[in-house]
Deep mutational scan, measured.
Amino acid sequence: SELMNSSKLIRMLEEDGWRLVRVTGSAHHFKHPKKPGLVTVPHPKKDLPIGTVKSIQKSAGL
């Protein structure tokens, strides 16, 4: 199965306009000026399962 580095996923979010608002432990929480909701990324993780990545991307509207 495909894995993604959390840094790469965070870069994709930031390029889309998401900004880090809070860190709780290894959970990084992002908000967007125009899009609704809060997106949480486990970080640092070298090997996020593709299912997790897809669900984060979906929440972020990517």
Results as ranks from 00 to 15, higher is better:
S1T: 13
S1M: 11
S1Y: 03
S1A: 11
S1F: 05
E2A: 09
E2I: 08
E2G: 10
L3I: 12
L3S: 13
L3C: 12
L3P: 15
M4D: 05
M4R: 06
N5W: 06
N5M: 13
N5K: 06
N5S: 15
N5H: 11
S6A: 05
S7K: 10
S7I: 09
S7R: 09
S7G: 11
S7Y: 15
S7H: 15
K8Q: 14
K8W: 14
K8T: 15
L9N: 01
L9I: 09
L9Q: 02
L9M: 09
I10T: 02
I10H: 02
R11A: 14
R11E: 12
R11V: 08
R11L: 11
M12T: 07
M12E: 07
M12A: 08
M12R: 08
M12K: 06
L13F: 01
L13V: 05
L13Q: 00
E14L: 09
E14R: 11
E14I: 11
E14V: 10
E15N: 10
E15V: 08
E15W: 07
E15F: 08
D16M: 05
G17Q: 04
G17M: 03
G17Y: 02
G17A: 03
G17V: 00
G17N: 05
G17K: 03
W18T: 00
W18A: 00
W18V: 00
R19Q: 09
R19H: 07
R19E: 07
R19D: 06
R19Y: 12
L20Y: 03
L20K: 06
L20H: 03
V21A: 09
V21N: 05
R22S: 10
R22V: 07
R22F: 11
V23T: 07
V23I: 14
V23M: 10
V23D: 06
V23C: 08
T24P: 01
T24Y: 11
T24D: 13
T24E: 13
T24H: 11
T24C: 12
T24S: 12
G25W: 12
G25Q: 14
G25T: 14
G25I: 15
G25L: 14
G25H: 15
S26F: 13
S26P: 07
S26Q: 14
S26H: 10
A27E: 13
H28M: 06
H28E: 04
H28D: 02
H29P: 00
H29E: 15
H29S: 14
H29Q: 14
F30S: 00
F30I: 00
K31Q: 12
K31A: 10
K31H: 08
H32P: 00
H32W: 00
H32M: 00
P33G: 09
P33N: 08
K34R: 13
K34A: 10
K34I: 12
K35A: 03
K35Y: 03
P36D: 08
P36R: 11
P36T: 09
G37Q: 06
G37L: 04
G37N: 07
L38I: 15
L38F: 10
L38D: 07
L38S: 08
V39R: 01
V39M: 04
V39T: 04
V39E: 01
V39N: 01
T40I: 12
T40G: 06
T40V: 11
T40F: 10
T40Q: 09
T40D: 05
V41Y: 01
V41T: 02
V41H: 01
P42Q: 06
P42H: 05
P42G: 03
P42F: 05
P42W: 03
P42R: 04
P42K: 04
H43T: 03
H43W: 04
H43D: 04
H43M: 03
H43A: 03
P44C: 05
P44K: 03
K45A: 07
K45P: 04
K45H: 07
K46L: 15
K46H: 10
D47G: 08
D47T: 11
D47L: 11
D47R: 10
D47M: 11
P49T: 09
P49V: 04
P49C: 06
P49A: 11
P49W: 05
I50S: 12
I50L: 13
I50N: 09
G51R: 10
G51C: 12
G51T: 13
G51W: 12
T52D: 07
T52C: 11
T52F: 14
T52H: 06
T52G: 02
V53L: 06
V53N: 02
V53I: 11
V53S: 04
K54H: 08
K54Q: 11
K54D: 09
K54I: 14
S55T: 08
S55E: 14
S55D: 13
S55C: 12
S55H: 14
S55P: 02
I56L: 03
I56Q: 02
I56K: 01
I56Y: 01
I56S: 01
Q57F: 15
Q57I: 15
Q57G: 05
Q57S: 07
Q57T: 13
K58T: 10
K58G: 06
K58M: 12
K58S: 09
K58D: 12
S59T: 12
S59K: 15
S59W: 06
S59I: 13
S59V: 12
S59A: 15
A60H: 02
A60V: 03
A60G: 04
A60D: 02
A60S: 05
G61I: 03
G61V: 02
G61M: 05
G61C: 06
L62W: 04
L62K: 03
